[in-house]
């Protein structure tokens, strides 16, 4: 068992455990913090795949920016008190069915992907390095890239418009 495998299994256990903790913790602030741990674990997986850019951007954008805003909102809403469990039985059943459907779709979709055929090449590919990824993004995939940036721009404009109201 090499260092890559040791790291892989450690990270996998960490990610699965913290992801479970996200949905099982009663306190929403704890959930957010566990989600941050999950993001760090996933970033670790990206590093193992030699996708360094993706790993660090995952931390900058998700762990560093979005989760800070989540934490911000939850702290200000003062959700300290553990909320009472849902009383309505039908809502619980509906949630169970909906979750089950999602699981079914995911499993069905994953069965037909190429994951089964192409095993991961840990630490060998170099498409994830900044220089290569940048070249790809700005030559082969320049149109989708620009469209995504326009999407972001419109989201920003929308946020400003909502914020300006009164």
């Amino acid at each position: 068992m090499g260092i890559t495998q040791i790291l892989f299994w450690t990270l996998t256990v960490l990610v699965l455990f913290s992801a479970l903790m996200v949905i099982t913790s009663k306190n929403p602030v704890h959930s957010v913090l566990w989600l941050i741990v999950t993001f760090f674990g996933i970033s670790g997986h990206y590093v193992l795949l030699n996708a360094q850019f993706l790993a660090i951007v995952n931390i900058i954008v998700y762990a560093g920016a979005i989760m800070v805003l989540f934490l911000f909102v939850i702290m200000l809403m003062n959700l300290n008190k553990p909320s009472s469990p849902l009383k309505n039985k039908w809502i619980q059943i509906a949630g169970f069915v909906a979750g089950g459907c999602l699981l079914l779709v995911l499993v069905a979709a994953l069965r037909n992907t190429e994951i089964a055929k192409n095993t991961v090449e840990a630490g060998t590919g170099d498409i994830g390095l900044v220089a290569n990824l940048g070249r790809e993004l700005f030559s082969n995939f320049v149109v989708p890239f620009e469209i995504a940036s326009i999407l972001f721009l419109s989201a920003m404009v929308g946020a400003v418009v909502i914020g300006k109201k009164e």
Binding site: Q52, V57, I59, A63, G64, V68, L129, V130, A131
Partner: peptide
């Protein structure tokens, strides 16, 4: 000596709030 050194610093700065 990672080849994303400056981005690493961005990441640390953005996590520093916690």
């Amino acid at each position: 000596d990672i080849n994303i050194g400056v981005l690493y610093i961005f990441a640390v700065v953005s996590v520093g709030v916690y």
